[in-house]
Design a protein around this nucleic acid. Structure first.
Lengths: 193, 193
DNA sequence: TCCACTGGCTAATGATAGTTAGCCGTCATC
DNA sequence: GATGACGGCTAACTATCATTAGCCAGTGGA
């Protein structure tokens, strides 16, 4: 069963996200989540169906948002190099802006119960395939030069994952600085011309 | 209390590593580990002190091996570019060859109890600092060109982490192929000359 | 032959956690 | 002013788990 989204459920979801990020899904208790919003553990069930449902909503929401951002970024131009630049920019910015979602999204797949795990993995594969296509098109157009588009796509995606781990809003590097540097890294890595 | 290392304890450690990788530390039970070596959960205590001890030994062993590999790679030459190439090569090969150790090593820091967590984090910081130093020296020698050595070191380290996630011994890409490609990526990323 | 050690086992302990049941105050609506 | 939905609460319930206790078969040396 799913639960309707009210202000309270949104607040609970935010608290769960923060705790899943800090402690991990398994180590976070319903009592912890309750305490974070000022109520007892069992009272959460007036708002959400289960702990697992909280994780499912965080994970699927993350993947949908990431895919949307990717599609929007890629749709704005036809030039292979520019398309890739914008895709990497969206990728890095998403991981900086939603670091907790991205962090939980990559680390807690194991804790997802079927069929949700399969659904999230399918979306991840789709996302990776999108990057690989961009790279392959760039190679065919003579704008990129890499031995293995698949390896290059892994490398670029992993950069984003890393951002979600160490980025801090109040750190010395701004989102803009990181996005600029990382798109530069990606284009260098592909030997873009 | 620590337990002496016999053939049996090594077998148990290997089984635990495989299960921690696949299920995560929290989700792995002592009964699971026992079953993997053909005995019951409580019998494990004839060989190891606790579940936590198993994790501690995996994590500290991983970080020590990684630091050793790094130091050995860096000691073999004085040329900044070549030093970095060898460090990245060692980094990538370690993550390919010991993917389970590396995977658990990065993902289960949360499950480590103090003072072990602090010890492992200190070693990680030391490792990262090593890479940053290599990059800074290369920049000062005019061989690398990056806006932020710290960002570049993060990026390169994250590439290795990624390898531990997707690399498979029986996959289509050999360790050599990955190591070669990734060192190339790293040098391109730094605009090495 | 005996004895002590090794390394299994089952049963019990104690703690923790997700979830359900059932109670009750508040408050908007009729 | 009654009433019913809403959203709290405490007290079970039911599992699961790490760990300990205590038992026992085999085995190898004295």
């Amino acid at each position: 069963m799913t639960t309707a989204t009210t202000a309270r459920t949104a607040e609970i979801r935010t608290a769960a996200l923060e705790l899943f990020t800090r402690l991990g899904y398994e180590a976070t208790t319903m009592a912890d989540i309750g305490a974070a919003v000022g109520i007892r553990g069992p009272s959460l069930y007036k708002h959400v169906a289960s702990k697992q449902e909280l994780l499912v909503q965080i994970m699927t929401g993350t993947m949908d948002a990431l895919l949307d951002a990717h599609r929007a970024a890629v749709a704005t131009t036809a030039d292979p190099v520019e398309r890739l630049r914008r895709a990497v920019d969206a990728h890095v910015r998403y991981h900086a802006r939603h670091r907790m979602e991205a962090f939980v999204g990559t680390r807690e797949i194991r804790s997802l119960v079927e069929p949700h795990r399969a659904a999230v993995l399918a979306r991840r594969a789709e996302y990776e395939a999108g990057f690989r296509t961009l790279i392959t098109e760039g190679v065919e157009a003579g704008r990129f030069s890499v031995a293995s588009p698949r390896l290059a796509s892994y490398a670029i995606l992993d950069l984003g994952m890393g951002v979600a781990v160490w980025f801090r809003e109040d750190g010395e590097l701004s989102e803009n600085a990181v996005a600029w540097q990382y798109t530069e890294f990606a284009l260098r890595l592909l030997a873009a011309v």
